[in-house]
Design a binder for these strands. Structure first.
Lengths: 209, 209
DNA sequence: ACTTGATTTAATCAAATGATTAATTATTTT
DNA sequence: AAAATAATTAATCATTTGATTAAATCAAGT
């Protein structure tokens, strides 16, 4: 019964497994990771994975839930705020995500691949829809369209564009780094630049012509 | 020896295998597809895969090469043309890709996932670098920066942005369709809109402020 | 019709892989 | 210290999976 174990010194076996699973799963995806890879990465006996987490799938579910929450947690309060302008929200959103993605660049491809493999199971766990639909951010956008301050397009275009400009470079980084002869440090410097640039670009895009 | 076989009526077993492999590989990726899935999809005995293509990996290599070529073929002549303006090239590029991706929406995630799993093997086969670096398109961009017609940013930002706005919606479509309560037809209609919108947006983005 | 070679099938193999077991070691409780 | 419980290990299972084999079927040339 690992759930109520006694020994609990140092970072614990359980945490080692989670850490290794996090690394391997996000790196290779569910199908391509072998439980043995995780055990080896953690420096532990294979049987311990099942002792602590019952199965590969259960372990994966934990990692995936945790990952989705991490991916959403930063953005919720940020887009809900009633006291910030739409532009401020965009700047905060972009800055927040680029910081996260510089630290964990393989999150987007991991999440999108697994959602494609299992949309029903995962999309609800993202909980994006319920949240975004009622967000102050969306209200501000619709209001700006209504009062003729910005060009009228489907809100989804607007959201797609912000996310695309922010997230896509990390999904395409192997190609893009190769294309620009950039090492990871140089690439990240470009991403840092985008924190300022994307809000400016978005602003220019939505301006009425 | 399938290479010099006699019988060759109807679309041939070989083509059936390729068709099935194309479908399953692009749908699930290399690791998650079982050779048995392909055989079943093709309605053929499993042993035929190896009879015709030697191994799962060799079959995959054929599909992947074909896919990368399809992904690049349209764009090469288009960005090389000496007789079109930069704006015209962007419009042609976006239109070309959105048409392709409406037909084959899972190409981008497939390609990007497999490149991540095996960058060395695949990036060279894309052959993007050699091509883009010498393209008329890039020359036009640099010239426009130099003559102060557009805002000076790293060319990679510019390329990222065009590709991101065009391709990302298809990568994120499960989430985006859910978010907007759209069926595939409605989603595609939005993508059609983007053929006109993206060039306008790009134009606005690069305008000097 | 017969022979030859290509194609197809059913059966099977060997390795990989997720999972379990039984024994061992370590820690906590009494 | 002894007993009880928890954690760990090595060995093994059962299934899946990519691949092969040997026999059967089919088409074309003679």
């Amino acid at each position: 019964m690992p759930a109520t174990r006694k020994r609990n010194i140092d970072a614990t076996t359980e945490e080692k497994i989670l850490e290794a699973a996090r690394k391997i799963f996000t790196q290779k995806g569910y199908s391509a990771t072998r439980t043995r890879d995780i055990a080896e990465e953690a420096g532990l006996n294979l049987a311990l994975l099942n002792y602590y987490f019952r199965s590969k799938e259960k372990l994966f579910d934990i990692i995936m839930l945790e990952t989705l929450q991490q991916f959403m947690s930063g953005v919720r309060p940020l887009l809900s705020s009633e006291s910030s302008s739409m532009e401020e929200k965009i700047t905060a959103f972009v800055g927040n995500y680029i910081d996260l993605l510089i630290k964990r660049p393989d999150l987007p491809l991991f999440i999108l691949s697994e959602i494609k493999a299992n949309p029903k199971k995962l999309i609800s766990k993202l909980g994006l829809k319920e949240f975004l639909m009622n967000s102050h951010f969306l209200k501000q956008f619709k209001e700006a369209v209504k009062t003729d301050k910005i060009a009228p397009v489907h809100p989804l275009h607007f959201i797609m564009n912000i996310v695309a400009l922010t997230v896509f470079p990390f999904i395409g980084s192997p190609i893009l780094q190769n294309l620009g002869d950039l090492n990871t440090g140089e690439f990240n410097k470009l991403m840092e630049e985008r924190k300022k640039l994307i809000p400016q670009w978005i602003k220019a895009m939505i301006k009425k012509t």
